[in-house]
């Protein structure tokens, strides 16, 4: 009888483990909106030594719903037009370890909002900031930088690419 209790409790615990995954935190604000105050470092070359690394955490990277929203927005705002599904084409690939302008959440956010030379347009005001942070979280999932249980598990379209949750982690090269 005792064993049955343990089995039941174990099963319920397993179910509860997945509770947080899809929680929709609409009230949770995006980390920061002002890119002019951003301290994200883009390059390793600095006068007078490097600044301490940016420690802005993107809360959306903890939430599967927000990341899957980011995945949809990545299509809807036509990021696929240049970066394709991560492999790159007109724009650089996003699923590898190379980051021209930094791979931390704040860097990617700033790159989307500010734009970058040679083709990346500035989306300032054109994408609501919360959605920029959702896209940022998704972009990082493409190179396997998010937890496996948060990264999207499938694609809505036909794709020969593996879903983001099975992407081998590609930590940014320093």
């Amino acid at each position: 009888m005792k064993r049955l209790y343990f089995i039941v409790i174990g099963f319920v615990a397993l179910l509860l483990a997945s509770c947080e995954r899809e929680q929709r935190r609409f009230q949770q604000g995006a980390p920061s909106t002002d890119t002019s105050q951003s301290h994200a470092s883009m390059d390793e070359i600095y006068p007078g030594g490097a600044r301490p690394p940016s420690n802005v955490a993107n809360v959306y990277e903890e939430n599967a719903y927000m990341v899957s929203e980011g995945k949809r927005l990545y299509e809807q705002y036509n990021c696929v037009g240049c970066h394709f599904h991560g492999g790159g084409g007109i724009g650089p690939p996003l699923m590898d370890a190379d980051w021209i302008y930094g791979g931390e959440p704040q860097n990617i956010h700033d790159t989307i909002v500010e734009g970058r030379p040679n083709g990346m347009p500035s989306f300032r005001g054109k994408i609501p900031d919360q959605q920029v942070w959702e896209i940022t979280a998704y972009v990082r999932s493409m190179s396997g930088l998010l937890r496996k249980d948060v990264a999207p598990g499938r694609s809505d379209d036909m794709s020969i690419k593996k879903p983001e949750e099975s992407q081998k982690p590609e930590p940014p090269k320093k």
């Binding site: 949809r72 927005l73 299509e75 809807q76 705002y77 994408i127 609501p128 919360q130 959605q131 809505d156």
Partner: peptide
């Protein structure tokens, strides 16, 4: 649901 227009804020 699923249409290609993102929600605005």
């Amino acid at each position: 649901p699923g249409n290609h227009m993102p929600s605005m804020s």
